[in-house]
Computed example of a mutant assay.
Amino acid sequence: MKIALIARAAWADPQAYTVDKQRVIVKPENLFLSLADRAVLTFAQQVVHTRGGTIDAYTFEPDAAAADRILHEALALGATTATKIVGGDLADPLQQRELIQRFVQRLIKQGQHYDLWLTGDTADSGFAAILAQELAAYYYEHVTALDSAFNFEIGLAKGKLLGQCQLPAVITTDDLIQVPELATFAALKTAMVAPITTIDLPIKSKPSTLVATQEQTDKVIFNLAQEPDATAKLVAKLKQDGILR
């Protein structure tokens, strides 16, 4: 059983970044492997223990130091190999698909085929769906429970969806499908000196640019006491602004 983990940083951690007016300041020294990814890595270890196989960890984190830190954590928690992908920005909508396509093409060229792709934190990205499409793999998203026989549960607003994953599969999880393990000091010490492979995938697509426009709308005051038709004027203004239909 060959398993691939897409390791990501815990951006939900309030210490990962600060917001100053119109700027977001990232603190890469506070970026560590997300708790959800630690949980799926714990699950992957259980699968390998039951069925045999290997776990290869990949990350697309743009900050080199954070990427190394995340991969070292993954190695300490049972990953067999660690690889960081550079050359493009996975969070950029104009570069994302090309980056994934080049990544998959490289894997195919090297004869790397995985039975299972796991990631526990993809709320801010369509990465997993695109990856499944490029791999022609089954896709299961927002899985809330999963066992080593790949029986899954997806929580719904009213009830739950049950089934069994077909392989090869790309799976994302919503909750902590397993209680994440903690790495031992000995494992961390070994992982810190373990080799990390770097794959450079130069992207032809130019990075997108976010341009924020600030528009000031006219302030209108409706005086209900002095204007008998103030209510009608207010409704008309709300319709003009698209708030009411």
Rank of each mutant, 00 (worst) to 15 (best):
Leu99Ile: 06
Thr54Asn: 13
Leu238Ser: 05
Gln226His: 11
Thr54Tyr: 14
Pro28Arg: 04
Gln240Tyr: 06
Leu107Met: 02
Leu224Ser: 02
Ile243Arg: 12
Thr198Leu: 10
Ile203Glu: 01
Gln22Val: 10
Gln166His: 10
Gly163Ile: 04
Val220Asn: 02
Ala145Gly: 04
Ala66Glu: 12
Ala66His: 03
Ile154His: 00
Ala236Asp: 03
Phe222Arg: 05
Gln166Tyr: 11
Pro202Glu: 04
Ile177His: 04
Ala76Lys: 06
Glu29Met: 09
Ala212Ser: 09
Thr50Ser: 06
Ala76Thr: 08
Asp200Gly: 15
Lys21Met: 11
Ile70Asn: 02
Lys21Ser: 12
Ala145Lys: 09
Thr59Pro: 00
Thr122Asn: 11
Val24Asp: 08
Ala169Lys: 08
Asp37Glu: 02
Ile196Met: 09
Thr217His: 12
Glu181His: 09
Leu234Val: 12
Lys160Met: 04
Lys219Ile: 05
Arg106Trp: 07
Gln178Leu: 03
Pro93Arg: 06
Asp13Thr: 07
Leu244Thr: 12
Ala44Trp: 05
Phe152Ile: 01
Gln15Asp: 09
Gly120Lys: 02
Glu181Lys: 13
Trp11Tyr: 04
Leu167Gly: 04
Arg102Phe: 03
Ile100Lys: 07
Ile221Glu: 09
Leu201Met: 03
Pro62Phe: 02
Arg245Val: 14
Gly120Phe: 02
Tyr140Arg: 14
Tyr114Trp: 05
Glu215Val: 14
Leu167Ser: 05
Gly242Lys: 02
Asp175Tyr: 15
Gln96Glu: 10
Ala149Asn: 11
Glu29Gly: 01
Ala232Tyr: 13
Ala65Lys: 11
Ile55Val: 01
Phe103Pro: 00
Ala12His: 08
Thr80Leu: 10
Ala137Lys: 10
Gly88Phe: 00
Val193Phe: 13
Val86Ser: 02
Gln133Leu: 15
Tyr58Cys: 06
Leu31Gly: 03
Leu107Ile: 04
Tyr17Met: 12
Asp147Gln: 07
Thr198Tyr: 14
Leu156Glu: 09
Asn151Met: 00
Ala16Ser: 15
Arg38Pro: 02
Ala225Phe: 07
Leu182His: 14
Asp241Phe: 09
Arg8Tyr: 14
Ala36Ser: 08
Arg102Trp: 11
Ala186Lys: 09
Gly126Met: 15
Gly53Glu: 01
Ala74Gln: 07
Ile243Trp: 12
Ile6Gln: 04
Leu71Gly: 09
Val211Ser: 13
Asp200Glu: 15
Asp229Ile: 06
Lys158Gly: 01
